[in-house]
């Protein structure tokens, strides 16, 4: 098999995951896109391991380790997202801007007048 096939597929999968990480708003969908990127890396690792015929099979061992670390990551990540949702009533990553510095003309200011009254509503909705 030509090595370019798995390598190109991995590059494209990685780019799709990159788009998902940057464009998605829900934190859980961002985590899903991270999984896609990790899978692209795993595909590269397996393809190059089979190509090089490594006697230690370091690529496949590292693939298994990446899968395990990804499972741990998604467990912790989902726990954190649940905690954020429980505390703030939303898991949208672009609303978690408490640490951001807001300029005077920033339209996404959650502490401003426009968004102020809606926050308690959402919290009540989340608690219901």
């Amino acid at each position: 098999m030509h090595l370019a096939y798995p390598a190109v597929l991995a590059a494209l999968l990685f780019s799709v995951g990159l788009y998902g990480v940057l464009a998605r708003r829900n934190a859980i969908l961002v985590l899903m896109s991270v999984e896609l990127m990790l899978n692209a890396v795993n595909l590269n690792l397996v393809a190059f391991d089979v190509w090089l015929r490594d006697t230690l099979h370091a690529g496949q061992a590292l693939t298994l380790f990446v899968i395990v670390v990804a499972a741990a990551e998604i467990g912790i990540g989902l726990a954190i997202v649940l905690l954020v949702y429980r505390n703030r009533g939303s898991s949208d990553v672009d609303r978690l801007t408490d640490l951001a510095e807001h300029g005077p003309h920033d339209p996404h200011d959650p502490q401003g007048e426009g968004d102020g009254p809606s926050a308690p509503e959402e919290k009540a909705e989340a608690a219901a």
């Binding site: 370019a4 190109v8 990685f14 780019s15 464009a23 829900n26 672009d94």
Partner: peptide, 25 residues
């Protein structure tokens, strides 16, 4: 479901895909 920076994300993803595919091929 998508945040406001879809266009920037698409640009970054297309640039990354182009660069990576070109280098790999």
């Amino acid at each position: 479901a998508d945040s406001g920076n879809r266009i920037a994300a698409l640009a970054v993803a297309v640039a990354a895909a182009g660069t990576l595919v070109w280098v790999v091929v």
